[in-house]
């Protein structure tokens, strides 16, 4: 690692944002390199389409570049917390505009490594069912699930991003999981056990 890139790694997102606010394109470039993968994943989990997720992330970064003052350093909000809100809002807008007939990706990207072809197929099917079940959740529940479970944010951070209280977030999360559980049981991915416990099939 060169001295310059080592220094860049030590710079916080917030420091980079301050530089971006003064028009530093290099700082913007470094921020994009550092954070694109993370926010692409967040966008993908919202819309389940690779091309759309890429567009959402690109739009979000362009908005940031054109109006970096939208992030206010004085308010002490972490860059990632703030940008999650930008990306998830962008994803919600995108999904509202898109045609309802469009489905998710085919899940062809899943590799059948170290598994038999049969297991690979079952895994793909299970993922497709899971993805469909998640996408069928109400928007706010899906957002809560994505932020808390997949982005591994604290309840406080997720609540801040969504603009709700912690209790409301916990309620959304609980309803999301309950809805998913019911959906997966109906689809035969989870099966209710004899003593009320579900078992995974597939």
């Amino acid at each position: 690692m060169t001295q310059k890139s080592k220094q860049e790694h030590e710079i916080s997102d917030e420091s980079l944002m301050v530089r971006v606010q003064s028009g530093d394109h290099e700082a913007f470039s470094f921020l994009v390199q550092r954070r694109t993968r993370m926010f692409y994943a967040a966008a993908y989990r919202m819309c389940a389409r690779q091309d759309e997720a890429e567009d959402i992330v690109q739009d979000a970064f362009l908005k940031l570049w054109k109006n970096p003052q939208a992030w206010d350093a004085q308010r002490g909000v972490k860059f990632t917390t703030w940008f999650y809100r930008v990306v998830t809002n962008g994803a919600v807008d995108y999904m509202r505009k898109k045609k309802p007939a469009q489905g998710g990706d085919s899940l062809d990207y899943l590799e059948d490594t170290a598994q038999s072809q049969q297991e690979g197929l079952e895994n793909k099917q299970q993922q497709a069912v899971l993805e469909a079940a998640i996408q069928a959740l109400p928007e706010r529940q899906k957002e809560a699930l994505n932020l808390c479970f997949y982005e591994e944010l604290s309840n406080k951070e997720a609540a801040d991003i969504m603009g709700v209280g912690i209790k409301a977030l916990e309620s959304l999360l609980m309803r999301a999981k309950a809805g998913l559980r019911d959906s997966l049981i109906r689809q035969g991915v989870l099966q209710k056990g004899m003593k009320g416990e579900e078992r995974i099939y597939g």
Binding site: T36, Y40, E54, Y109, L110, F149, K177, L190, I200
Partner: peptide, 21 residues
């Protein structure tokens, strides 16, 4: 019950983004 659900949720994956994004 939730642990079983969490195990399934953990299997969810995200395709790689385009190299040139």
């Amino acid at each position: 019950r939730m642990n079983e659900l969490d195990k399934i949720l953990e299997k969810r994956s995200v395709p790689e983004m385009s190299d040139n994004l």
